[in-house]
C-alpha cells in the first residue's frame, strides 16, 4: 500500500480571505485505501481545506493533485474534470436534493454519467442505499427523514459512481453515539470491501480514534495569528506521545494550559 503513489498530494496550500490567513503552507499526502482524518477545533479551517480538496475553492497559493491530476489553477479543464469525477463528497447536512426521493438522489449521477439502463440504475441505487442501511427508506423525500438518515443517504449518493476517493464532512456531528458508531463501522466496511480511500473532516474524538489510519491537525494559531498544521500522524500515537499543548488538550478534552500554541 505504501509503495503506490499517493491519491491526494497537497503542497503548500494556503487560504487567505482579505488580510485574514485561515491557514498557510499546508502540505500532506493521502495514500490509497487509507482513512485520513482532518481534525481541529472549530474555526481552524477544516471545512475550508476540504473545499479546496474537492475543487470548490481555489487555494490562494499551493498545489493540489488528486490521483495525479492537478485541480488547482495550472490544470486544464479536462484534467480537473477527471480529478473531480473520481471523487464522491458527502456534505455536512447531506445536501440531498429536496425535490427528489432518496432513490432518485442516488440515481441522479448514475443517470447522468453511466450507460446503465433504467432498471439497472434502480437496482444499483437500491444496493447502495441498502449498504448504508436505508433499504426501506428509498421512496422517502429528504424532508421526511432524520439527520442521521440524511447523512447516510449523502454517503450513498457520494458512492453512486463508485469513486475511489470519498470525502465526508463531519459525518458524525449531531448524531447519537450508536448511529455514529454505526457510521464509523460503515466507513471501515466500505474501505475493506471496496478498497476506497476516505478523507474525513471531523472533531469527534471517538470517531477519530476508531477509524483513522492517519490524521493532520489544524489550528488557528499555528503560526501566531495564522493557521496551519500543528500535528500529523497516527491519532493514537498523537494522543499518547504529542508534546504540543493544543494536541494534548484536544485529545484529553481539556482547556489548553497555555494560551500560545507551540
Amino acid at each position: 500500500m505504501s509503495a503506490s503513489p499517493p491519491i491526494i498530494d497537497v503542497a503548500g496550500a494556503t487560504q487567505r480571505f482579505g488580510t485574514r490567513t485561515i491557514f498557510r503552507d499546508v502540505s500532506f499526502s493521502v495514500r490509497r485505501g487509507e482513512v485520513f482524518v482532518i481534525l481541529g477545533g472549530s474555526g481552524c479551517g477544516k471545512s475550508t481545506l476540504m473545499k479546496q480538496l474537492i475543487g470548490l475553492l481555489p487555494p490562494t497559493a499551493g498545489r493540489i493533485t488528486i490521483g495525479g491530476d492537478a485541480i488547482t489553477e495550472e490544470s486544464g479543464a479536462a484534467e480537473r474534470d477527471r480529478a473531480l469525477r473520481g471523487m464522491g463528497v458527502m456534505f455536512q447536512s447531506g445536501a440531498l436534493f429536496g425535490s427528489m426521493t432518496l432513490l432518485e438522489n442516488v440515481m441522479l449521477p448514475l443517470q447522468m454519467f453511466t450507460p446503465l439502463p433504467p432498471e439497472a440504475r434502480v437496482a444499483v441505487a437500491r444496493v447502495k442505499l441498502g449498504l448504508v442501511g436505508l433499504a426501506d427508506a428509498a421512496a422517502l423525500m429528504p424532508s421526511e427523514i432524520s439527520g442521521g438518515m440524511a447523512k447516510r443517504a449523502g454517503i450513498a449518493r457520494a458512492m453512486a459512481l463508485d469513486p475511489p476517493l470519498l470525502f465526508l464532512d463531519e459525518p458524525s456531528a449531531g448524531l447519537d453515539p450508536i448511529t455514529s458508531a454505526g457510521l464509523d463501522q460503515l466507513i471501515l466496511d466500505l474501505r475493506r470491501d471496496l478498497g476506497a480511500t476516505f478523507v474525513i473532516v471531523t472533531h469527534e474524538l471517538g470517531s477519530i480514534l476508531a477509524i483513522a489510519d492517519r490524521c493532520i491537525m489544524l489550528d488557528r494559531h499555528a503560526y501566531g495569528d495564522e493557521g496551519g498544521i500543528i500535528a500529523e500522524g497516527d491519532p493514537r500515537r498523537l494522543r499518547d506521545e504529542s508534546t504540543n499543548p493544543i494536541v494534548r488538550a484536544f485529545f484529553r478534552r481539556q482547556v489548553p494550559q497555555t494560551a500560545e500554541a507551540a
Binding site: M100, L103, E104, P118, V122, R126, V127, G130, L131, G133, A135, D136, A138, A139, D189, R192, D193, L194, G195
Partner: peptide, 24 residues
C-alpha cells in the same frame, strides 16, 4: 474473499421485495 464479503453484505442489506419504482 473481498468480493464474497461485499456480496454477502449487500445481499443482507437489500430489501427482499422492494416496492416497484414508478419513475419520476
Amino acid at each position: 474473499e473481498e468480493l464474497q464479503a461485499l456480496l454477502d453484505r449487500a445481499r443482507a442489506t437489500s430489501p427482499r421485495k422492494p416496492a416497484p419504482y414508478a419513475g419520476n
